[in-house]
Design a protein around this nucleic acid. Structure first.
Lengths: 128, 128
DNA sequence: TAGCATCTATTACGATTGTAGGTGGAATAA
DNA sequence: TTATTCCACCTACAATCGTAATAGATGCTA
């Protein structure tokens, strides 16, 4: 499993590490909104499981608390997520786009940005 | 659970019903490619579970075999799928698009189509 | 009608995910 | 130094999913 599959909660934990640097479990837990915040031990359990999956590791210790850091990149994790998602649609992009647009998730600006990104990317690929 | 969450396999089964009309379990099973086709009873179990979730129902009987039909629309199911997916990204569209494009999942044509769809849609909304 | 093929219905099991309690040890505050 | 707080570690458990076997009923075929 080069790129383990991460659940939503696992992703939220990874997100804390990606954007907040190495953190202790208590700190990760506190990145969740008070409303509906999971128990300390719940976060702990998920962190341990992420450790088993080699998605993160213990970087050092402060007092008796472990400090964890991400081992896989946000990009890699998201890539995996997108792949799985597309798999749900049989890999066909068209219905996905249609769905995004009809549900109003995709704005004109998003599409314009996408266009620009595509242009830049194809240019870069030509250059290389 | 107005819109139950469907797994990949469940979606594939629903897909058979959506595109193939009411089907018997054997028929659903045979829509899977020979290579890696799940056992008859595996499909059966999933169909039963979809029945409990009210995603499909027994429409009638032929001989002693039940014929199943979809109760939820492909659109509704996909909407749910997209929502969950966006939830994984914290609801932010931008990283999703970036990911799709960088992974090469999104072509120039896809974006052009999206643009057209957006235009048509905003026109329709203005008209209404 | 006897037997084979086919279905239904039930049951089981391992993996994953979300949830968290309990126990004991370490750090800190008084 | 003692009491309180915080943390680590282990254990548990229900729900969901994928997988399928088994047993019993039904229908078709020779």
């Amino acid at each position: 499993m080069r790129l383990p599959k991460l659940s939503k909660l696992e992703l939220q934990i990874m997100e804390a590490l990606w954007s907040g640097g190495p953190l202790a479990i208590r700190e990760i837990q506190e990145t969740f909104p008070q409303k509906g915040r999971p128990a300390y031990t719940t976060v702990q359990t998920m962190v341990y499981r992420l450790e088993v999956k080699k998605a993160l590791r213990r970087a050092r210790k402060i007092g008796n608390a472990h400090i964890f850091e991400a081992l896989i990149s946000r990009d890699a994790a998201q890539r995996r997520l997108v792949d799985d998602f597309l798999g749900m649609f049989g890999g066909r992009m068209q219905p996905v786009m249609a769905q995004l647009i009809e549900a109003g998730n995709l704005t004109t600006k998003d599409v314009a940005d996408a266009e620009k990104l595509l242009r830049d990317l194809s240019k870069k690929r030509k250059d290389a």
